[in-house]
């Protein structure tokens, strides 16, 4: 729905992660659900979307019955944090090696979205918040450079 457009990238990231990392995909959707309910839980379009998303989440939790990360949020937080950092570190290494490609833009951006997801579990540490800001800024900066045919520094 229009009112929830700000969450579209998180929804897309969840879909991309479904096969690669179902646990992170699950928490990405929990984040969307929780945030969307704060933004718009009243319009018919949003209610329809949220009902479908909730069905999906309940089904996913059953399918992931053997994954401790889904049933214990402390373990889940650790899992999502590790995954986000892994993507961040990949992007950072590539960037510092002078290989700032579209894949690196994407990785920085995905990392920044997953840092958003971590806010589900409480306030981000200063270190993570700094990485989140850096990832978002780097994604925008490299994207702009590539678009303008400039070499990112």
């Amino acid at each position: 729905p229009q009112t929830l457009r700000s969450l579209a990238h998180h929804v897309r990231t969840a879909a991309e992660l479904d096969k690669r990392d179902p646990v992170t995909a699950y928490y990405c959707r929990v984040f969307v659900m929780q945030t969307a309910m704060k933004i718009d839980s009243r319009s018919p379009e949003s209610r329809k979307f949220l009902g479908g998303l909730m069905d999906n989440l309940e089904k996913a939790k059953k399918e992931l019955a053997d994954r401790e990360e889904v049933h214990d949020e402390v373990v889940g937080q650790c899992h999502v944090e590790n995954y986000a950092l892994q993507i961040f570190i990949y992007a950072d290494n590539e960037d510092r090696a002078g290989r700032a490609t579209r894949a690196v833009v994407r990785a920085f951006y995905t990392a920044s979205l997953l840092f958003d997801v971590l806010s589900l579990f409480g306030e981000l540490s200063d270190e993570l918040m700094e990485k989140q800001r850096y990832a978002r800024w780097k994604a925008t900066y490299i994207h702009t450079c590539l678009k303008n045919g400039e070499t990112p520094i």
């Binding site: 929780q34 309910m37 839980s41 009243r42 209610r47």
Partner: peptide, 27 residues
């Protein structure tokens, strides 16, 4: 009609909140 619509909406909202809390084992 407005108040019935509003109470239905908040009822559904409560139901979703409860389902989310159950999902996250917060109940």
């Amino acid at each position: 009609g407005g108040s019935i619509g509003a109470s239905t909406a908040s009822g559904e909202q409560d139901e979703l909140s409860q389902r989310l809390a159950r999902l996250r084992d917060q109940v």
